[in-house]
Design a binder for these strands. Structure first.
Lengths: 255, 255
DNA sequence: CGGTCGCTTGATAATCGTCAATTGATGTGG
DNA sequence: CCACATCAATTGACGATTATCAAGCGACCG
């Protein structure tokens, strides 16, 4: 975990490490103002922990490259991944309530983040109404995403969850302007299972099944979506697993 | 749904409808400032909808009395409850990102809410640093709660979820200074099932089981917790349902 | 008084977890 | 450079948790 402080008179001298790497919907002037409160960039190797659950909440982190998981620790040593973060996403926003991080932030791959002091961010917000609205939007987006995850976990079957997840990967990449049909998964099957409330084995079977039905081509971590329409069917209606007796709608017994 | 506008020169003339009903951790001066941006109080009957998913986001709502559910609508007419709200909680905070409500807010019982204009709230926040921190805390609390729900749905068994839910009811009542061991559930079994990712029948069986084991006394919607310690055991370790073959840990075959 | 609603309880079945064996990739040290 | 260990992933067999289907009951309402 290598830290690279950003010298204070940085602004507008060199290209800033975050240039062009802020969330894509920020106006230029806001990008400017945000880079002014950045304090460091940090490099992490796979598996390194950027923030510990319960630790004092002093920084927000913007993902510049790589990917992260947010891990909640439960009783009995169990844990679950509650969020994945990719480039241009802001991490740590759930820390405001208790002034400590609520989950571990762990790098899934070699990654770079840009660090912001919470205090500076709050000051900048008080001074600038537009910035306030932006922060409210970001934190509110996270809330929205968490509620969608609740829906996935509570109401969708395993095949629907995988399909839903893959579609979200696609929209994330669309926002970044990258290829929507071909991408690498930054996480293991086990991590994906943890996030979706399933086991590694179920994830593996479902990915194999997607491959077998030519909905997508899956090779290790590489995913190539072949049929968006079929993926949509998976998400809406679900499917049965490889070796099932198909469910015959039980014939209504006529009275 | 009866609306009662709050006359503008209200402040400090009559007792304000929200007096003593704001979130319990607000300082007096902040309470004062918040009541100044309240626009109306609204009375709702059971089943009435305060905000529709997708509708324009112009107001935040503080529950004065009663209770609400936040319902997410999915494809295929399915829907899930993603949050319950009780007295002194603020609703609508996930609307900032798209400037529309992300779920239906439905009254579970005859209820009263206090309505705040989003615009006024944002202005008040820009003007007052302490208020900003408060709002960040509230929205961040919601995010935290949603992430805990993800953990429940993804990692806990049915008995653990019920126990977890009952414990949360207790902490909610503790914050309000009300009896922690005896309370009414404001929702039906079906609604509770929707929230916990279970069916009505499973909820019913589990509540019966809690009763049968003298962990709690359950009569219709009334709950009386008898053994906090056993409830904790249910949450940590789970239990088996009424008629099971107990799982014998398969004897390790010695090599 | 009939009808709907909320709830309970039982019997059955399906989804998905658990356990196990195997393979390939990666990395490490002798 | 190759044995060896480790880890991610795949696949199969089996079983348990929990959903589904069904029947019945009390309460409330028009």
């Amino acid at each position: 975990m290598k830290r690279h402080p950003i010298p204070l008179p940085y602004r507008s001298q060199h290209p800033h490490p975050c240039d062009g790497r802020l969330p894509p919907d920020l106006h230029a002037e806001l990008q400017q103002r945000i880079t002014e409160v950045a304090t460091s960039t940090i490099e992490l190797a796979r598996g390194e922990i950027l923030a510990h659950s319960g630790a004092a909440f002093h920084h927000l982190y913007l993902v510049v490259s790589g990917a992260f998981k947010a891990v909640q620790l439960g009783a009995e040593g169990k844990s679950q991944i509650v969020c994945f973060y990719g480039p241009r996403e802001l991490m740590g926003l759930s820390g405001f309530s208790h002034r400590c991080y609520t989950s571990d932030l762990v790098a899934l791959a070699p990654s770079v983040v840009c660090e912001f002091s919470v205090q500076s961010v709050e000051s900048a917000i008080s001074a600038d109404r537009a910035l306030l609205e932006r922060l409210l939007i970001y934190i509110s987006e996270n809330l929205e995403r968490a509620e969608q995850d609740q829906f996935m976990l509570g109401s969708l079957t395993a095949p629907q969850r995988i399909a839903c997840f893959l579609q979200r990967m696609q929209t994330a990449r669309r926002r970044l302007g990258e290829d929507v049909h071909s991408f690498e998964l930054p996480m293991t099957r086990e991590e994906l299972g943890s996030y979706l409330g399933l086991t590694m084995e179920t994830i593996s079977r479902l990915l194999s099944h997607l491959h077998a039905q030519d909905v997508a081509r899956i090779d290790k971590r590489h995913v190539h979506i072949l049929r968006d329409d079929l993926l949509q069917v998976w998400r809406d209606e679900g499917v049965d697993l490889p070796l099932p007796k198909r469910k015959k709608p039980p014939e209504l017994k006529l009275a």
